[in-house]
């Protein structure tokens, strides 16, 4: 173990303060009794209570969750299929072009993605609402999923699938019984990634949403333009809580699986 040094301690503290100070302030002020955001007037949970009576916010939250769940599921299916074909089909004509085109949306400015989708929806005469947001989010989240899944597939031993075929599986059964269970962790993390991306997307959603459906980030953004209210702080605190619980549990699950595997392998070597 390294010994304690003032330099390390200082840089660590500064780093964490820099990262988390804004969020800590936000969380503290969400429990402020005063309506004025910058004046502390004692502890209270009344903004949380009020938040749950705000129909607008609740409706937006429901829309956001619906969009996130549906679009990340579609994105996972499409992204996995794309990754599978690109990794597995070997070299076919235009493979580089296709894989490049899968990854291009990752670096495309969101404004452009949003604008082009908007033009498309107008062009085909699709009314903007929850359906268009889902379509838009599926489109841009799909390439993230495909990146995550294809990085797993490139290290996947192809002979496992051949073994499944050899033992009597049809190609689809081989995928379902062998490939899918093995790459499942990558697919799940792809889904989680798509879900979070959809949850906090503002730009693309604001291009593709209509009066009938607004997501939470749009709601927060437009509310803040009229002034920061403690209600927004409460809402943001809840979102931070959800994300923290999700990230921590996901990393704990991964870590525990890795530790268990290492222990199993050690005991195998000893026997």
């Amino acid at each position: 173990m390294k010994r304690f040094s003032w330099f390390n301690a200082t840089s660590l503290t500064l780093g964490f303060v820099f990262l988390y100070m804004p969020m800590i302030i936000l969380v503290i002020y969400s429990f402020n009794a005063s309506k004025l955001v910058t004046v502390w007037a004692g502890f209270s949970t009344k903004w949380y209570v009020e938040l749950f009576h705000n129909e607008d916010f609740l409706a937006a939250a429901v829309v956001t969750l619906k969009v996130a769940v549906v679009s990340s599921t579609f994105a996972t299916v499409l992204g996995t299929m794309a990754a599978y074909v690109l990794v597995r089909q070997g070299r076919f004509h235009g493979r580089t072009l296709f894989s490049g085109m899968i990854y291009a949306p990752l670096v495309m400015p969101e404004v452009i993605t949003g604008l082009s989708l908007l033009l498309l929806f107008i062009g085909i005469g699709l009314d903007r609402g929850i359906v268009t947001i889902i379509l838009a989010h599926t489109t841009f989240a799909m390439c993230y999923v495909s990146v995550v899944v294809s990085s797993r597939l490139t290290t996947f031993d192809h002979s496992l699938e051949e073994a499944a075929l050899d033992l009597g599986c049809s190609p689809f059964e081989a995928f379902r019984l062998v490939t899918l269970p093995i790459i499942a962790p990558a697919i799940i993390s792809g889904w989680l990634l798509a879900f979070t991306l959809s949850l906090d997307d503002l730009v693309i959603a604001s291009f593709t949403s209509g009066p009938s459906a607004t997501t939470l980030p749009i709601k927060i953004f437009s509310a803040v333009r009229l002034g920061v209210s403690p209600e927004i702080n409460a809402l943001s605190t809840i979102m931070i809580g959800i994300v923290t619980v999700g990230v921590v549990s996901a990393s704990l699950i991964t870590k525990r699986a890795a530790v268990k595997r290492a222990r199993d392998e050690q005991s195998a070597e000893r026997s």
Binding site: S159, E162, A163, A164, I182
Partner: peptide, 9 residues
């Protein structure tokens, strides 16, 4: 077939 890498699931 028995694979070189064994290809156990």
């Amino acid at each position: 077939m028995m694979f070189q890498s064994y290809a156990l699931f």
